[in-house]
């Protein structure tokens, strides 16, 4: 299988590569449109700030490339948020592939810390992305912004409110959590994506 990881100025790319290597899969890290378009599957990672991440994509015209992809695409963390319509993080217009808005958690000191850091449970699991994943499994999160729930939600998580832990529209999948850092559960979700 020909797997491409989109290279742009956004953090955790090596973590994703390491996770894939641990489950025995090689991937190309690339910002070349032709390579991305011809890949069987595409992973769109991200850590950092939405506005500068969008600018980095636009600089290489990758925003147009991603919107036109037909193969399965998995956005991770900020990658997922960029698939959405709009983020409150620096009032950023995102790719608009999944018509969902991204909002900021409101901190409440010792009761609700922001960012959410750590392991939380995912529920209401839908789609093959969660094959053989039990309801209530723990996944690792680091984020201050979340996607609102709607009909594109394929997993929910609760942190002060219920938000979309994963999204799907057509061939585009997104997970808010770091599947590449989520122990055996995360490894299985990555494998499930590769088997879609």
């Amino acid at each position: 299988m020909n797997l491409a990881i989109i290279k742009y100025n956004a953090g955790n790319i090596m973590s994703v590569v390491n996770a894939l290597e641990r489950i025995g899969v090689a991937a190309q890290i690339t910002d070349d449109p032709a390579t991305i378009i011809s890949a069987d599957k595409v992973i769109f990672p991200g850590v950092g700030e939405a506005g500068s991440a969008m600018k980095s994509l636009e600089k290489n015209n990758l925003h147009q490339v991603i919107r036109a992809l037909k193969q399965p695409v998995l956005g991770i963390c900020v990658g997922m948020q960029l698939l959405c319509r709009h983020s409150e993080e620096n009032n950023t217009a995102c790719l608009g592939i999944i018509p969902v808005n991204v909002r900021k958690f409101k901190p409440d000191f010792s009761l609700l810390k922001v960012p959410q850091v750590g392991w939380n449970r995912i529920h209401d699991l839908q789609s093959g992305l969660f094959s053989n994943i039990e309801e209530g499994s723990f996944i690792y999160n680091v984020h201050s912004y979340y996607a609102e729930k709607d009909e594109h939600t394929i997993a929910s998580c609760t942190y002060g409110l219920s938000y979309a832990a994963a999204l799907k529209k057509d061939n585009f999948y997104g997970v808010q959590f770091h599947t590449e850092k989520s122990a055996e559960t995360g490894d299985r979700i990555l494998k499930n994506f590769l088997n879609i």
Partner: peptide, 15 residues
């Protein structure tokens, strides 16, 4: 409201 927030988070304590 405080109690509600505690109930509405399933974030695990980390070891």
């Amino acid at each position: 409201a405080d109690n509600k927030i505690i109930l509405e988070s399933t974030l695990a304590k980390r070891i």
